[in-house]
């Protein structure tokens, strides 16, 4: 049975979409069958990192959930299209089993789904169906920030939850709440991922302090890097720059995920 991995953060802009795209790609490179649920196609999300736009993606998960199309019709096969792209990183995904499931669980649509009695069981069944249909080992969900009902749903059905935070006070408070909620929802494997850490901090020290205060293991502390800003969502960073410290940290997180039996 495949595993559901949610990538979440209390506040926006922490690097969820970038982390999801990189982790999913790294795990797919190891020969695993991987899916990504893109929860947001209105604003720039994860599909951009794979060089896709709304048109090229075709059908959405919502159409599938309404019974209009099959799950295979929704899945966009990234590995099949990666061979002829000019991005150095993405090209490495050629032939890998990596699928993107675009959806638009947003705004009025989400409230409608909730009102119609869309619940954890149904969402879980939907995800399990997706994994079965494509025989996936891992399904990554790039969530929205915050703690609304939609994110609580995706946290609750996760096997693994990765909570991203920046090392600043504004992120600490909300992350502390999220950690406790995740524990109440009995998530089996909970990790913090610290992103955008300033180089003036001692990263190992920071890791130990955060693990102590949140009583949760920190999968990695990733540096704030200008190179990332220059990349401007054009490629999968860790595949394009495998020797960069940010990429090395990401690989550590991917190894942690792979080691969970």
């Amino acid at each position: 049975m495949g595993k559901i991995i949610s990538i979440h953060s209390f506040r926006g802009g922490t690097g969820k979409s970038n982390s999801t795209a990189n982790l999913a790609s790294l795990v797919a490179l190891k020969g695993k069958r991987v899916g990504i649920v893109d929860t947001d196609i209105q604003s720039p999300g994860i599909h951009v990192l794979f060089g896709l736009d709304e048109k090229s993606m075709g059908h959405t998960l919502n159409e599938y959930l309404r019974g209009e199309v099959s799950i295979e019709q929704v899945a966009f096969n990234i590995g099949e299209h990666a061979g002829d792209v000019d991005m150095e990183g993405r090209r490495k995904l050629a032939g890998k089993a990596l699928y993107l499931f675009p959806s638009s669980i947003k705004g009025t649509e989400i409230s409608r789904i909730l009102k119609d009695g869309y619940d954890a069981n149904k969402l879980n069944e939907g995800m399990q169906d997706m994994m079965k249909a494509l025989n996936l080992d891992y399904l990554f969900i790039d969530t929205h920030p915050g703690l609304n009902e939609e994110t609580l749903l995706s946290i609750s059905i996760s096997d693994i939850l990765i909570l991203i935070m920046r090392p600043d006070n504004q992120d600490f408070q909300g992350t502390a709440v999220t950690v406790d909620i995740a524990k109440l929802l009995l998530v089996d494997h909970l990790y913090l991922l610290v992103n955008k850490a300033l180089s003036r901090y001692d990263l190992n020290h920071l890791k130990a302090e955060i693990e102590g205060v949140f009583d949760t293991s920190v999968a990695a502390v990733l540096p704030l890097t200008e190179d990332m800003v220059e990349n401007a969502s054009g490629d999968i960073f860790s595949l394009a720059f495998p020797n960069h410290p940010w990429s090395k940290g990401m690989m550590q997180v991917a190894d942690t995920i792979l080691s969970i039996g």
Partner: peptide
């Protein structure tokens, strides 16, 4: 305030079934 809502109570129940 989160755990006190009906939504959360229901979610927690469903989640433990799922697990």
């Amino acid at each position: 305030s989160i755990t006190g809502s009906d939504f959360f109570t229901k979610l927690k129940l469903e989640t433990s079934q799922i697990r």
